[in-house]
């Protein structure tokens, strides 16, 4: 009854994904050498988010899951982002 229609990710794809992730990691380490000032954190977070999306999409097979699950995952991160923003309505203006 189960798992019949599951998608099988090939070894090669898994490996390629790893390579991309490693490159991104390297980038985030190198990028701090450039002293971007206020943008350091933004850059670090941006790269981390890209990595996060890649892990979710390929390693965690989100690409092959139902739409509803993908919406849920997106919604979760959005909700969290909103909560942070709202918290900062307080801290930013204090």
């Amino acid at each position: 009854m189960d798992n019949h229609d599951s998608h099988i990710t090939s070894y090669a794809l898994n490996f390629k994904v790893l390579l991309v992730l490693l490159i991104l990691t390297l980038t985030s380490i190198l990028v701090i050498k450039f002293h971007l000032g206020a943008f350091t954190v933004a850059m670090a977070l941006l790269l981390a988010s890209i990595k996060c999306t890649i892990v979710l999409t390929y390693f965690m097979h989100l690409k092959f899951e139902s739409l509803i699950l993908r919406l849920m995952v997106g919604g979760i991160f959005l909700l969290f982002a909103i909560i942070i923003v709202i918290t900062f309505i307080d801290y930013y203006f204090r």
């Binding site: 909103i82 307080d90 930013y92």
Partner: peptide
């Protein structure tokens, strides 16, 4: 309901902006 928690903190010294929000 997720976004209204601060109404418990009006007197706790939150910023003015977040109070009206």
């Amino acid at each position: 309901g997720y976004f209204v928690w601060g109404h418990h903190m009006f007197t706790s010294g939150m910023s003015y902006e977040s109070r009206w929000f």
